[in-house]
């Protein structure tokens, strides 16, 4: 059946059903239902403290829900053991809000880390793949970048190194946790372009957590809004902009970046 989340769908890569999560008395996710479209940029918007990052951490098993299901290509990942979960996690790459680069490693060691941990590859092949990504992400032109440590990089460069690390093992799904937070407008635009280009060139399914409305409506294929632990709006960019949902309208209009019934202002 096409709509059965337990069967592999050509259109939907991740399907989330009735996801609940509490921390003590705080009920953060209150029954999230959402489908993530394969090969597209799916952006989840919402205010601070609405559970966006908690939701994203569930997608690749960094947090376990209290109840609910997450189907990745039809396979429920909730309750999987270490080995089976490891196989699922190899489909994912994650770009963290502040890049989460390993302080004790230089740029090359950071980017090569997933390859070195998972496979026994010749050093030359690892370096080839690292350098190809550095070139693709416009990092190669920075002198001596390979031997630099995270502390020596700017915020935008860190994010790109984080993306290179997430991309090196050619994941099917890329998760971005607030990728433009703390960046200036030019760096934000560059990161947006990087997300768009990565989706187009690698064909990966992108899931982006954001509260940057300008970025969202510039690059999103699909937009969902998480509010008080529930998805209150979900659809293509056009569908969402036509939504009558008052919470969504207020959130988007307050940003001033887009107007309802139109595109980015």
């Amino acid at each position: 059946m096409a709509d059965d989340p337990q069967s592999r769908s050509d259109r939907w890569q991740i399907r989330i059903r009735d996801l609940h999560k509490s921390f003590g008395t705080q009920h953060v996710l209150r029954g999230v239902n959402l489908d993530i479209e394969r090969g597209k940029i799916n952006i989840i918007i919402g205010g601070s403290g609405q559970g966006k990052s908690v939701f994203m951490k569930h997608l690749m098993g960094l947090l376990a829900p209290d109840s609910g299901h997450i189907y990745v290509d039809g396979q429920d990942i909730i309750g999987l053991g270490d080995v089976a979960m490891g196989k699922i996690q190899r489909k994912f790459g994650m770009v963290f809000q502040y890049a989460a680069l390993f302080d004790s490693m230089n740029v090359v060691e950071n980017i090569a880390f997933p390859l070195l941990e998972r496979y026994r590859l010749p050093k030359t092949e690892v370096m080839e793949r690292v350098r190809a990504l550095l070139t693709l992400l416009d990092l190669a032109k920075t002198a001596g970048i390979e031997q630099k440590f995270p502390a020596e990089l700017s915020g935008g460069m860190r994010k790109r190194v984080g993306l290179a690390r997430a991309l090196i093992d050619r994941p099917e799904i890329l998760l971005y946790d607030e990728p433009t937070t703390g960046l200036d407008p030019i760096a934000t635009k560059n990161v947006d372009e990087m997300i768009r280009r990565t989706a187009d060139e690698f064909g990966v399914t992108s899931v982006v957590i954001s509260h940057d409305m300008a970025s969202t409506f510039r690059i999103a294929d699909r937009v969902a809004m998480l509010y008080e632990g529930l998805i209150v709006a979900n659809g293509t960019r056009k569908e969402v902009l036509a939504s009558p949902n008052p919470v969504l309208r207020e959130f988007v209009e307050t940003s001033g970046a887009v107007q309802f019934g139109g595109g980015p202002s």
Partner: peptide, 15 residues
């Protein structure tokens, strides 16, 4: 420091 800068989570994402 690794925990608060999400480096521990990053390890988990690489299985």
């Amino acid at each position: 420091s690794m925990r608060i800068t999400e480096q521990v989570d990053a390890l988990t994402t690489f299985a």
